[in-house]
């Protein structure tokens, strides 16, 4: 049996392109991760393996030169000679981005539902406005400081800003999920079976849209955590947002230390993504 040439060459070509693209994208990540354990990285490739010094410095476990702050390790428990400490500042800045996601969920899901479910006067405007804050963080940051000088530099200001900046991604992800299911039919089935509207929304509509909500939350969190421009303009004092933490460790640092900071950021993103996914699949499980 002969194989069609298009199939013979086509499949190979697609596979090769895919491998090349993935490889091209992955090499920097892998190299950075490997480099974070190197003592020296002055040439093309890092050398002097293996040291944990970079990670210690980034994690604030080792003394560093200059005024670079640690991640705020706070002792919460001391037993014998051992102390259990948590990087409270790191946790706080992860929570800043999560706070933005929380607002996005509370505000974005109903907006997405309204736009997907109902034809009302001005629905296109609501849709457009919910996507409007797709402006660069610098612009929103400056406008934000002008409009709400009291919120400048506060954690709440950052959280609100993140939610505004990333809301479009939540609305778009959830809306397309709503649009892909027979939303009205689901709602009417639940209502006819005796569920009130709020109950229908919470026990049927939202759980049925879970995959869109989870992916929206992951996109929003990742983008909020990496949002440098807005954070840079609005943040004044106190715990630093993740993006600023990253910048602090990249500028004025050795290559290897920057690599450790970037790798840590990767790790946090992976962990939060997995956590959001887990919460998403378990949190909506109404069985039992």
């Amino acid at each position: 049996m002969s194989v069609a040439p298009s199939r013979r060459f086509g499949r190979g070509l697609v596979t090769a392109t895919l491998l090349l693209a993935v490889g091209f994208l992955m090499v920097p990540v892998v190299l950075t991760f490997v480099g974070s354990f190197a003592g020296e990285w002055s040439g093309v490739l890092p050398s002097e393996f293996i040291t944990l010094q970079n990670w210690r410095e980034v994690l604030g476990l080792a003394e560093t030169i200059g005024s670079q702050r640690s991640m705020g390790w706070n002792a919460i428990l001391s037993v014998g000679g051992y102390t259990l400490a948590v990087p409270s500042e790191l946790i706080f800045s992860v929570a800043l981005a999560l706070g933005g996601v929380f607002i996005n969920l509370v505000v974005g899901v109903p907006i997405a539902y309204a736009v997907a479910r109902y034809d009302f006067r001005g629905d296109e405007w609501v849709n457009a406005i919910s996507v409007l804050p797709l402006v660069p963080g610098v612009i929103l940051g400056v406008a934000f400081l002008r409009a709400y000088p009291d919120l400048a530099g506060t954690s709440f200001g950052l959280i609100v800003g993140y939610s505004l900046l990333k809301a479009p991604f939540m609305v778009m992800a959830v809306r397309s999920e709503f649009e892909s299911m027979p939303l009205q039919r689901l709602e009417e089935s639940a209502r006819s079976l005796g569920a009130s509207w709020p109950r229908t929304f919470l026990t049927v509509i939202v759980p049925n849209a879970r995959s869109g909500i989870v992916s929206g939350a992951i996109i929003c969190w990742t983008l909020a955590a990496a949002e440098f421009n807005f954070s840079y303009i609005v943040w004044a004092k106190g715990t630093q947002p993740l993006a600023l933490f990253l910048q602090r460790h990249i500028s004025n640092s050795s290559f290897t230390k920057a690599a450790a900071a970037v790798s840590m950021f990767f790790c946090i993103i992976v962990v939060i993504t997995v956590l959001l996914q887990q919460v998403g699949s378990r949190g909506f499980d109404t069985r039992g």
Partner: peptide
């Protein structure tokens, strides 16, 4: 009782 062409079953259950 309602039965639709689209079935409209609750996928979360």
């Amino acid at each position: 009782g309602l039965v639709f062409q689209e079935y409209a079953l609750f996928d979360n259950m």
